[in-house]
């Protein structure tokens, strides 16, 4: 099930943005000189199947970039807070609880208000809000690990603090880290599609799943519900597989 998301990236389509007003809103499975339109065509006569497949690119890219940014900020913050404790920890924990109090979606909306509409802004905004989760997990892990014997041994051997943090302790925390990455990937995907649905994420004509639902949900009452239901099902499927992945991983040991 977990493989379902990545395999749809196979992309061999060139007509995703080709408009042809002679073949607008054809039903699924209809044929034109462009070939078979598996999911029919949209309101500009573009092949819906190609657009759905291309939409996966945005979703997966957002996931990867947001997770990378969140790791880049979250690991050092969590590690320093957990390792050094004291005032630094108090300050960082406070900063985290402040960010934690604003629902992620609202924080991202606020950030896109500042940075402007567009997909790059969404990458940054989602990454900048998600590091909190990473930092919380890493901090908790460091609190538990830092009093163990091997850390004491490393201190006695005279290793520097950065060496102990990144070379000695960090490798021991990667199990929970993988779990949080998978969950974050899923929520990044959800937030991106949500923002695109609200019209502040990917801008047309770039195909994105959330944007497609936005464009076609008024078509529900014309009997063309599949135009918005297909991308929706794909979002749900990707999120489900990522969540399953993280559950399986966390129950592994």
């Amino acid at each position: 099930m977990a493989v379902a998301a990545p395999i749809v990236v196979l992309d061999s389509t060139s007509n995703a943005n080709d408009m042809d007003l002679n073949r607008v809103l054809l039903g699924p499975g209809s044929k034109t000189d462009m070939g078979l339109h598996l999911f029919g065509t949209d309101k500009y006569g573009r092949d819906h199947f190609s657009r759905v497949i291309l939409g996966s690119r945005i979703s997966l890219t957002v996931g990867f970039i947001a997770v990378s940014i969140s790791l880049f900020i979250g690991i050092p913050v969590g590690a320093f807070a957990g390792y050094y404790g004291g005032r630094l920890d108090q300050f960082l924990t406070w900063a985290m609880s402040v960010l934690w109090s604003i629902p992620t979606l609202l924080l991202v909306i606020a950030l896109t208000f500042v940075l402007g509409k567009g997909i790059v802004q969404v990458f940054i905004a989602v990454g900048l809000t998600m590091w909190v989760e990473v930092a919380r997990v890493i901090r908790g892990q460091f609190l538990g690990e830092k009093s163990k014997e091997y850390v004491e041994a490393a201190k006695v051997l005279g290793f520097s603090a950065p060496h102990i943090i990144f070379k000695e302790i960090l490798p021991n925390t990667w199990g929970p880290l993988v779990v949080i990455c998978a969950t974050n990937f899923a929520s990044a995907l959800l937030i991106e599609s949500g923002l695109s649905f609200l019209g502040i994420g990917a801008q047309p004509p770039v195909p994105s799943w959330g944007g497609m639902i936005r464009e076609y949900y008024p078509y529900l009452i014309t009997g063309k519900a599949y135009l918005s239901l297909i991308p929706g099902a794909l979002i749900a499927g990707s999120v489900l597989s990522l969540n399953t992945l993280s559950t399986v991983w966390s129950e592994r040991d």
Binding site: A186, L190, S193, G194, F197, G210, I213, Y217, L220, A225, S228, L229, G232, A233, I235, A236, G237, V239, L240, N243, T244, T247
Partner: peptide, 18 residues
């Protein structure tokens, strides 16, 4: 319930409305 947790609310909304 895992399936329900994975459904984005705008998708559920469209689905239920439909």
């Amino acid at each position: 319930s895992s399936l329900g947790m994975s459904l984005p609310s705008f998708f559920t909304a469209v689905l239920f409305a439909w």
